[in-house]
Design a protein around this nucleic acid. Structure first.
Length: 412
DNA sequence: GTCAATGATTACGA
DNA sequence: TCGTAATCATTGAC
């Protein structure tokens, strides 16, 4: 109140302005030196009315004949409670009369104009610095994420693209239960979406109601206080910013919920599934046929991955596990090794036989291929000397030094 | 429910 | 970056 008093005191001496000067501070200043009786009178009235509490201001009603507030619309609807009785609020009649006299005073518009200008140059200019904030990059990120996840924006497939991307990121081939997990993900995402929009609607409604309330209040106050439309707009912007921060929290929470859902979805996809028999056979064949160097090249891994319908990483994992487990317990794997060696040999021999049959169709006994021949072929295929085969045609495998057992040679 | 098998992950070293 | 070794976590047979 002291500042206001000082401001008002500084304006003492204004008076005698014509209607044409109303609203023009420069014109007001030009009139300095005019009789000061009017100004002193109006200042006293203003001081009396500005002592009124907000509750009182809201409770009372303005006289219908009171002029529109100095800088706003003439529409009575914008005046909030404007249009009520002429003597409402239970206030003394002389008080009502003073307000009425103040609003009708010929100096009021000019004086308020000057007060607003001073206020604009002091308090509001300080606020104005932070008024023009650039768009918050964090909000932009949240918006983009919500849009990408299908939470905000038009509902097209309810985030099925995101679910598909999550499935792809999991790296696994779509299993029989993939559809179930997919629909579960979509259902939960739809739930999040619904809650998000419901909360957003509530916030927007609350923001709108509160903004209207404040605007009405400020317009009402602008009858007796220097509150310009610009200041009202600024106040509305401040309210919107406050509500934006609440919205940001909502968006942040929604993003977190989506991330949790997504990670759970990915975890569910990551559940271990045993490779099918065919895939295991392909991998084992390669492993045992390259036992001297069971390190497939990148190309070989890609080829195996393609054959087994698994990823290259899974091939690498499989070979890593196989090498270490074979090395740890060769004895246990010996039978399996022999099995695959023979199988490989038979396959190779079969191909060889077909080739030789094509070259000399009259070759006798071409239909019965002995295991000893298979053993030779296996040895040839594996790069083994025939002496490494036992009497049954089983390969006594030449194990890579890196796979030689550290201990327990009895396993051999 | 137990347990071996097995795919995946992690820490570490070359 | 790749391979090794240890370990975790799940599957599937019993």
């Amino acid at each position: 109140m002291d500042d206001q008093t000082r401001m008002l005191a500084g304006l003492a001496g204004l008076g005698g302005l014509s209607q044409g000067d109303v609203g023009d501070p420069d014109s007001v200043r030009k009139q300095l030196g005019q009789p000061q009786q009017d100004i002193g009178d109006i200042l006293q009235q203003i001081m009396a009315i500005t002592d009124e509490s907000l509750d009182e201001a809201q409770a009372r009603c303005w006289p219908e004949e009171s002029p529109a507030h100095w800088g706003g619309s003439d529409d009575p609807a914008e005046g909030g409670e404007a249009g009520g009785g002429t003597a409402g609020g239970g206030l003394p009649l002389n008080f009502q009369h003073r307000k009425h006299a103040l609003n009708c005073h010929r100096m009021k518009p000019a004086l308020f104009s000057v007060l607003c200008e001073i206020k604009e140059k002091t308090v509001l200019s300080i606020r104005g610095i932070q008024d023009e904030d650039p768009p918050d990059p964090q909000i932009m990120r949240l918006d983009n994420m919500l849009l990408a996840e299908g939470v905000s924006g038009p509902e097209k497939g309810g985030g099925s693209a995101a679910a598909a991307a999550a499935a792809a990121a999991a790296g696994g081939s779509p299993g029989a239960d993939g559809g179930v997990e997919h629909s579960d993900y979509r259902a939960k995402l739809a739930q999040i979406r619904q809650i998000y929009h419901s909360e957003l609607e509530k916030y927007e409604q609350a923001c709108s109601e509160f903004t209207n309330h404040v605007m009405n209040l400020l317009r009402e106050q602008s009858r007796t206080r220097p509150i310009s439309p610009k200041e009202i707009e600024r106040m509305v912007a401040i309210i919107h910013r406050k509500f934006s921060s609440i919205q940001m929290q909502l968006k942040q929470s929604t993003c977190e919920a989506v991330m949790i859902l997504r990670s759970r979805f990915l975890d569910a996809r990551r559940k271990r599934r045993n490779f099918n028999k065919q895939a295991t056979e392909v991998l084992n064949e390669y492993f045992y046929s390259h036992l001297s160097n069971p390190y497939p090249s990148e190309e070989a891994k890609e080829e195996l991955a393609k054959k087994c319908a698994i990823t290259v990483s899974q091939v690498s994992n499989w070979f890593g596990n196989k090498r270490i487990r074979y090395k740890k317990n060769i004895g246990k794997f010996q039978e399996e090794a022999n099995l695959y060696a023979v199988k490989t040999a038979v396959d190779a021999a079969s191909v060889s036989a077909q080739a030789s049959q094509a070259n000399s169709p009259a070759t006798p006994n071409s239909g019965s291929y002995s295991l000893s021949h298979a053993g030779d072929a296996a040895a040839a295929y594996l790069g083994l000397h025939p002496s490494n085969l036992n009497g049954d045609g089983e390969a006594v495998l030449n194990i890579a030094p890196s796979l030689q057992p550290q201990v327990g040679t009895e396993d051999l």
